[in-house]
Amino acid sequence: MSLDIWLIYIATVFLFMITPGPSHLLMLSNSMTHGYKRSLATAAGDLSANALQMLAAGLGLAAILVASQDAMTIIKWLGVSYLVWMGVKMWRQADTVKSGQKAAGSASLKVLWAQGFITSAANPKAVVFFAALFPQFIDPNHAFWPQFLILSICYIIIDALFLNFYGASASWLSRRLKGHAKVLIHKIGAVFLVGAAIILSMKTLRDSA
């Protein structure tokens, strides 16, 4: 892989990341309500799912997922339902949040990691995306796996940077709001979760059309 091709790939991924997806909205929500440091578990869950999806693409499993449309659709709608359930639950809890209370204790790191993993895994077509994206930048005259590894690591690093940016920004805003504003932040977090579910559902409906 030449330097020029690698730079084009980096630019392509950055452009793809500019528009927030479900995982980024989830990161915003969890950082607002649980704090930036704890929200890193959510980012880790998202990146873990991405790593598995990339591996599946590299092993040629994309064709299997494409052939199994029913299974793919079920997984997607389960992910959508999970996000809606979390959003509704967070909205109902918002009025119980008082100034000075620590919201971080409401969810364990394991739960936050699972939220990130499930949200990312709810889009199994990501495997197809990686399977379609990576070959555009892989030189067939060189070994496949070293190039594939470089592309995967770069994607994960860029995604991690965006997740951290969204998380740090949301946490910075949350720390500066007190009293009733804390309740508002909790509700905004709930809206972000439902927004992530809407994005996933729109993608699912579009893919099913």
Results as ranks from 00 to 15, higher is better:
P135H: 11
S81Y: 00
S2W: 08
I5V: 12
L173A: 07
A170T: 03
Y155I: 13
G60F: 09
V111R: 07
M90L: 15
R38M: 07
F192H: 03
A126H: 02
L161P: 05
I5W: 07
K203P: 01
G195H: 05
W6E: 10
L193R: 03
S2L: 09
F130G: 00
P22D: 02
F162I: 09
I188M: 14
L177Q: 06
L193K: 09
G116M: 04
I74L: 14
L55C: 12
D46V: 06
L78H: 10
G87W: 00
T119R: 07
A11Y: 03
I74E: 04
M17Y: 04
F148T: 06
F162T: 04
A62K: 01
G167E: 04
A131L: 07
W145Y: 13
A209T: 09
G35F: 03
A51C: 15
I199S: 08
I158R: 02
T19F: 11
W6T: 02
F144M: 10
A49W: 01
Y82I: 08
K203H: 14
A41T: 03
H186M: 12
P146N: 10
M86G: 00
G58C: 10
K125T: 10
F162D: 00
F134P: 02
V66Y: 05
L163S: 01
Q53W: 04
F117L: 12
V111F: 07
H186N: 11
M202H: 14
A56P: 03
N50L: 12
Q147H: 08
A94T: 05
D207E: 13
M54E: 04
N50V: 13
D46S: 10
M17E: 13
L59H: 12
D70V: 15
G58Q: 12
P22C: 03
A114D: 07
K187F: 09
F134Y: 12
A11Q: 12
A160R: 09
T42Y: 00
V127L: 11
L173V: 04
G105Y: 08
R206P: 02
D159M: 10
F134R: 05
P20Q: 05
A49Q: 04
L52F: 13
L26V: 10
G195M: 11
L25Y: 01
K182R: 15
M27C: 01
T119M: 10
G167V: 02
F129I: 14
V191L: 15
K89H: 13
L112S: 00
Y155D: 06
K76L: 02
D95R: 10
S106A: 11
Y155G: 01
A104C: 09
V66T: 11
V13Y: 07
Q93A: 14
A94Q: 02
A209D: 12
S2F: 09
F14T: 05
L7H: 07
G79S: 04
K187N: 13
T12F: 02
D95P: 01
K76W: 01
S48F: 12
A190T: 14
F137Q: 06
A132I: 14
A63P: 02
K76P: 00
K37S: 12
I157D: 09
L200A: 13
W6D: 02
L52E: 06
D4F: 11
